[in-house]
C-alpha cells in the first residue's frame, strides 16, 4: 500500500515536472519568436534581414511568403503574424483601417521594376516586347501585385500595351512570375529588381532595369499587427530593425531605393 502511495506521489511529481518544463518551454518560445508575413518580392531580402535580426537580438523569425493580397486577407481573418512586410501601401492601409494594426503603416523601401529573360537570344527591352520572337510576357497580376501594376503603366507609357496585350500571362504573385520566367515558359517577364539581385537568380539569363520615371514609385509598406503586449515588444524590435542602417543596407544591396530622393535623383 505504502509502495503504491509512494509511486503515486512520484508520478504526480514527475507529471508536474513535465508540465512545468513544457510551460516554461512555451514561455520561452513565446518570448523569443516572431512570425513575419512578407510579400513575394521580399522573398530573398527578408531572409537576409531576418537572419541579421536574429543574430543581433536572439529572436528567431518565421517568414511566411505570399502575395500581399493573400496575406492581407489572412491577417483580416486573424492569422498569427506579428509584422506584415507588404509590397505596397494599399494593403497595409487596409489592415490599419480594419483595426488590426498598432499604428499607421510606414514605407520602408521603394521597389524597382526589371525585365528579365532566360533566353540567350532575347535582349530585354520594352521596344523588343512586340517582336515576334516573344510569344508570352509574364507579369504579376496587376490587380493584386504592385509590380504588375507598374508593368502595365510602363507598357502604356511606351504605347506598346495594345501591341502586346495578347501576349501577357499573369502570375498570381511575383513568385509565380519568376517561376514562369525561370522555367522558360515565358520568353521574358517583369519582376522586381530584388529578385535578380539575388545571386542564384540574377546570374541566369539577363535583365534590364526599367526607367523609374515611367511608373509610379512602388512604395513598400510595413505594419505592426496588434497582439498581446509581450509579443509587441519583439515585433517592434523587428519593425525598428527594418529601418536600421544594417537592414536598409541589405535592402539597398537588393536593389531597393531607400527614399523618394533616390528616385528623384534618378530622374
Amino acid at each position: 500500500m505504502r509502495y503504491r502511495v509512494l509511486s503515486f506521489l512520484k508520478l504526480k511529481f514527475l507529471f508536474s515536472l513535465i508540465l512545468l518544463v513544457s510551460v516554461a518551454g512555451c514561455e520561452e518560445e513565446k518570448k523569443n519568436h516572431i512570425t513575419i508575413a512578407a510579400a513575394a518580392n521580399m522573398q530573398f531580402a527578408i531572409k537576409e534581414i531576418s537572419d541579421a535580426f536574429t543574430k543581433q537580438t536572439g529572436i528567431s523569425c518565421d517568414v511566411v511568403i505570399s502575395s500581399s493580397g493573400k496575406l492581407t486577407a489572412q491577417i483580416k481573418e486573424g492569422a498569427p503574424y506579428d509584422v506584415f512586410v507588404s509590397a505596397n501601401m494599399k494593403y497595409p492601409r487596409e489592415i490599419f483601417k480594419a483595426g488590426f494594426a498598432v499604428e499607421k503603416p510606414k514605407v520602408y523601401a521603394y521597389g524597382q521594376l526589371v525585365l528579365w529573360s532566360l533566353y540567350e537570344e532575347i535582349d530585354p527591352s520594352i521596344e523588343g516586347l512586340s517582336h515576334e520572337n516573344i510569344q508570352s510576357i509574364a507579369l504579376p497580376n496587376p490587380k493584386t501585385a504592385p509590380y504588375g501594376h507598374a508593368a502595365i503603366e510602363i507598357l502604356k507609357a511606351n504605347e506598346v500595351y495594345e501591341l502586346v496585350a495578347d501576349k501577357l500571362v499573369y502570375g498570381e504573385s511575383i513568385a509565380q512570375t519568376n517561376q514562369f520566367i525561370t522555367s522558360k515558359s515565358s520568353e521574358i517577364g517583369f519582376t522586381a529588381k530584388s529578385v535578380v539581385m539575388y545571386p542564384n537568380m540574377g546570374n541566369q539569363g539577363h535583365w534590364q532595369a526599367l526607367d523609374t520615371t515611367q511608373y509610379k514609385p512602388i512604395e513598400q509598406g510595413v505594419i505592426l499587427i496588434k497582439k498581446e503586449d509581450s509579443d509587441i515588444i519583439n515585433s517592434t524590435k523587428f519593425y525598428d530593425f527594418l529601418f536600421s542602417e544594417e537592414a536598409q543596407k541589405i535592402l539597398e544591396d537588393f536593389g531597393y531605393l531607400l527614399d523618394n530622393r533616390d528616385l528623384n535623383s534618378l530622374r
Binding site: 493580397g69 486577407a73 508570352s136 490587380k143 493584386t144 501577357l168 502570375g171
Partner: peptide, 22 residues
C-alpha cells in the same frame, strides 16, 4: 494557365483572384 482572361482564367481562378484583390 497564366490567368489570361477569355483563355485560361476559369472561374476557380477568378474566385482566387477576386479574394486576393479583396
Amino acid at each position: 494557365g497564366g490567368n489570361i482572361p477569355e483563355k485560361t482564367k476559369v472561374v476557380s481562378i477568378a474566385i482566387y483572384d477576386e479574394v486576393e484583390a479583396l
